[in-house]
Design a protein around this nucleic acid. Structure first.
Lengths: 238, 238
DNA sequence: GCAAAATTTGCGGGTTCCCGCAAGACAAGA
DNA sequence: TCTTGTCTTGCGGGAACCCGCAAATTTTGC
């Protein structure tokens, strides 16, 4: 059995290495890669079926790497091991998990014990192991109360990238008015109409404010923006 | 001699602890705190004059903590030890360094050797030790070419928070038109007028696009936004 | 298959934004 | 003192945004 570790921080990498050794005696080789790009190459070459990786790496982040790995071998078992449970990350992962794949998502702040359980659970038992806190975010992002639908999320990204309504309409093949409707739903969902303690109406530019609160609430983050920007550029140049 | 370590990642904390022990034999006590808030309290109680800390911690980030520490004792020597050299962080640090204070800024990716040199340089020799890469960012952010002036940066933050031109004008005690002028400068500096490969003019909402590219280029980041939001709220409620 | 519910679209208008133009305000330097 | 340059302010208009209203279309549930 082979395990591939993709993690850019050397300290965390060696910690993970040790944890894998301790939790999985049946594992004979442990490979390491120090960024998403190297990780993809390693995964391809070594045909490793068990991967544990960080999200948020420079060079190429975990979500990108996981996507290409899964695209090549959808039965790969991946354990995500991240510092954060930003909704943007959780959503990002959810978007790329292939049908029926087994994966896990644990936070770096969990105990050694839990990490080991997660490693065994995902790699040996083929269970999906999701940290309690991450699970909480998942639920919340689905709940109709504050959770954004996929349509709303996508338009949020487009707006955040700085596209005009017209550009979005064209991109999404909708009428101008539909785009604006979705925007209104978005504003509604983000509670922009009832921000407390703001004096005269018209303090906020709703469009910008929506992005600001999305960023503050971690519904969006830099990595999601980068992904959107890349997609945008590639769509332009086709 | 006392050294206070403020760092939320346990692995990094113990690594730092060891580095301090190795680099500074004259240091008799090493204290630890696991977030910015605890760090401030520790610094106050222990009267430590030597601090090494991470930026980007949850709970309360390094810049906030450093500011209050320096406010209470401006002669404290602080070594920032961070994963990133985002312009937003560099600028954030620069904003709070008191007159004549000695500090350092090194990246976590530097070698053990350099870290130790930085520790000795800042704490013993009272030198300012700034990583080559960080220095590069500093220079760039000052160069008139792409660098934003303070005025431009501040308006960027206000826009990013979602304020309208009118609100900004009032806040900054300027006329509406002046605010818009600054915005135009900002758009100019960020090269929004010559983005390559975008077809018909009018793909972008300049206001939003400015924030998007600032985020992508790390001129802005989530932590800067949070700071801005806090200031905004406190200004509202005075 | 049909009615209810949700989405999409067009129209119209009020508001805000973006910006060219030009007239004051102020500081630095010949 | 008289430029020269930078910064600020006002005016005006075209474009984009925000949104209520109502009809057309699609989706959903039974």
């Amino acid at each position: 059995m082979k395990v591939l570790i993709i993690e850019d921080d050397p300290l965390h990498r060696s910690y993970l290495h040790e944890a894998v050794r301790a939790a999985l005696p049946e594992c004979d080789t442990v490979l390491e890669a120090e960024n998403g790009h190297a990780g993809e190459v390693q995964a391809r070459q070594s045909r490793a079926e068990h991967v544990v990786m960080d999200l948020q790496m420079s060079e190429r982040n975990g979500i990108e790497a996981a996507r290409t790995i899964w695209r090549e071998r959808p039965d790969t078992k991946i354990l995500f091991w991240s510092n954060y449970s930003d909704e943007a990350y959780v959503r990002g992962v959810a978007r790329i998990v292939p049908e029926g794949a087994t994966y896990g998502y644990v936070l770096k702040s969990t105990s050694d014990e839990r990490l080991k359980l997660a490693l065994r659970g995902v790699f040996i038992e083929s269970q999906c192991v999701i940290d309690r806190e991450v699970r909480g975010i998942q639920q919340k992002s689905l709940g109709t109360a504050h959770g954004l639908s996929d349509a709303e999320y996508e338009i949020l990204v487009d707006v955040a990238l700085g596209l005009t309504d017209k550009a979005i309409a064209q991109r999404k093949k909708l009428s101008l008015r539909s785009v604006q409707n979705r925007l209104q739903q978005l504003y509604e969902k983000l509670d922009l109409y009832e921000e407390p303690g703001n004096g005269p109406e018209g303090w906020y530019n709703l469009r910008m404010r929506a992005v600001a609160v999305a960023l503050l609430r971690k519904v969006l983050n830099a990595s999601a923006l980068e992904r959107g920007e890349r997609e945008l550029r590639s769509a332009r140049g086709n």
